[in-house]
Design a protein around this nucleic acid. Structure first.
Length: 466
RNA sequence: GCUCCCAUCGUCUAGCGGUCUAGGACGUCGCCCUCUCACGGCGAAAACAGGGGUUCGAGUCCCCUUGGGAGUACCA
């Protein structure tokens, strides 16, 4: 049997970080077993669903590298089949028409709550034999009153529900449109889904769905409810915790591989290992190694992984990405791939990397005041002047020679290399942080180096700090 | 309220009755490296929620308590 999973998001504006992980687990499970991973857009809530929102989700999945099989199914286009399923259930006696009004239902629930009971439909229309003409009705599922429904969950094990706890849920609204539980069951069955991998917030719906499969005479798929992702404080992940949309991570300079690796390790593990390539994930992923506990989102660990992927990446593969964040003209400046190579191990995100690369292409207009105060003293000027005149007559300007010149000047003056390296760094970059000074100058080239140092010395002597 | 789920360092987790004086990773704190920032290396602090059982033996099994979470719609 071919294993077939699906991801079924509602197109309501973004691909949520939690949804992305659900998609990832579902995708991994399918790929691991050589099965298929399908997509279904649950757009039955017409008010909130837009084509743009759908595209945002598809884009997010593509960016993460979660490819799906076939064309996405749009739930809204399958309405006729949902209605047919409901009619089949009426025929077979598993469903009935309910003429209760919303006010009536609300009053009933209020009374139940007041009596300290769980609000649920009491089945008052179950045995109604008349069919009032012109009166709106919904179609309800005739849920069993006795016995139990067991969900055999691949992550949680067997979960038992008393049927008495499950009321007669609405299958078709009074406007004739299907509700979620009916649509999911009909669609998953029609799509041949063998394994439903979804967030554990759906666990409570599952026994109802199991009953629907049975009433419809359809095979019940396997279920795997994966734990939810919480914010750093343990509560539901929301905007106040920072980024929740996948696009925000892309814009913050995270690499899809790093995010995938991080998300995979949130809830799944393989011994003591932390770093997994995509292929390794596919090879090793198993629902049995998925934990039951909700995980908190830890930005710092994501940062660590992103930094790891960043420094392991091939510099030239990062060029286009860095360009997105650089906002500078690189023509006439050093080769961006080389600049990236020097910044990879000192950046956690592409944004940081681009920020660190910018001065190579844009001359500093001002100098970090704190750094200047700290590194410029009376004896700094002679060192800088010695450096300028030394490189003026250098035969060739490369890393090794620059290093030797700086070292020589400092040695002669009896000071550490930082006494000269830091002032130079500030003058050429504007601040106290950059790649190693010899490499930085080599990349800038002699002319640019001389220009920046001279101009900087002039400005600082005029007291122009910032 | 009711139903369901969950519970190991601050965080992610390993642990599937004895190998646990509980391991790894992120983060934190020291030290080393060093021209800055990083990287890297070495080291440290840091957890089995509480209480009952079962068992020769429990982090591992059962029950209760507590604490989190989810659901409780003519949303999905």
């Amino acid at each position: 049997m071919t294993i077939r999973t699906r991801f079924a998001p509602s197109p309501t504006g973004m691909l949520h970080i939690g949804g992305a992980r659900t998609a990832l687990f579902s995708w991994l499970y399918a790929r691991h077993h050589g099965g298929e991973f399908l997509l279904r857009i649950e757009d039955t809530d017409r008010q909130r669903s837009t084509p743009e929102a759908t595209e945002v989700i598809l884009d997010g999945l593509r960016w993460l590298g979660l490819d799906w099989d076939g064309e996405p199914v749009f739930q809204s286009q399958r309405q006729a089949e949902h209605v047919m399923a409901a009619e089949q259930l009426i025929e077979s006696g598993h469903a009935y028409r309910c003429y209760c009004t919303q006010d009536e239902l609300e009053a009933m629930r209020e009374a139940q709550r007041a009596a300290g009971r769980k609000p649920m439909y009491d089945g008052r229309c179950r045995h109604r034999s008349d069919q009032p003409q012109g009166k709106p009705y919904v179609v309800r599922f005739r849920s069993p009153d006795v016995g139990q429904t067991v969900v055999h969950d691949l992550v949680l094990g067997d979960v038992v529900f008393d049927n008495a706890e499950l009321d007669d849920l609405i299958l078709l609204r009074s406007d004739g449109t299907p509700t979620y539980n009916l649509a999911v069951v009909a669609d998953d069955a029609a799509m041949g889904i063998t394994h439903v991998v979804r967030g554990s917030d759906h666990l409570n719906n599952t026994p109802r769905q199991v009953q629907l499969y049975q009433a419809l005479g359809l095979p019940v798929p396997k279920f795997a409810h994966i734990p939810l992702i919480h914010g750093p404080d343990g509560s539901k992940m929301s905007k106040r915790h920072g980024a929740v949309a996948i696009t925000e991570y892309r814009e913050a300079g995270y690499l899809p591989d790093a995010l995938v690796n991080y998300l995979a390790r949130l809830g799944w593990s393989h011994g003591d290992e932390e770093v997994f390539s995509r292929d390794e994930l596919i090879e090793l992923f198993d629902l049995r190694q998925v934990g039951k506990t909700a995980a908190r989102f830890d930005q710092q660990k994501l940062d660590w992984l992103n930094a790891l992927y960043l420094r392991q990446a091939n510099p030239s593969s990062l060029v286009d990405e860095v360009l997105r964040f650089l906002h500078a003209d690189i023509a006439g400046g050093p080769d961006l791939a080389e600049v990236i190579a020097t910044l990879q191990e000192r950046s956690r995100t592409l944004v940081e990397l681009a920020d660190g690369a910018r001065f190579f292409y844009v001359r500093p207009e001002q100098y970090d005041a704190k750094a200047v105060k700290k590194h410029f003293r009376e004896d700094t000027w002679p060192l800088l002047e010695a450096f300028v005149s030394a490189i003026e007559d250098m035969a060739s300007f490369d890393r090794e020679r620059v290093h030797e010149v700086i070292r020589g000047i400092c040695e002669q003056a009896g000071v550490g290399m930082g006494k000269l390296a830091q002032p130079i760094r500030i003058l050429v970059s504007g601040g106290p942080v950059s790649p190693p000074i010899d490499k930085t100058l080599e990349l800038l080239g002699r002319d640019e180096t001389l220009l920046r140092i001279r101009k900087g010395m002039e400005r600082l002597r005029q007291g122009l700090l910032s």
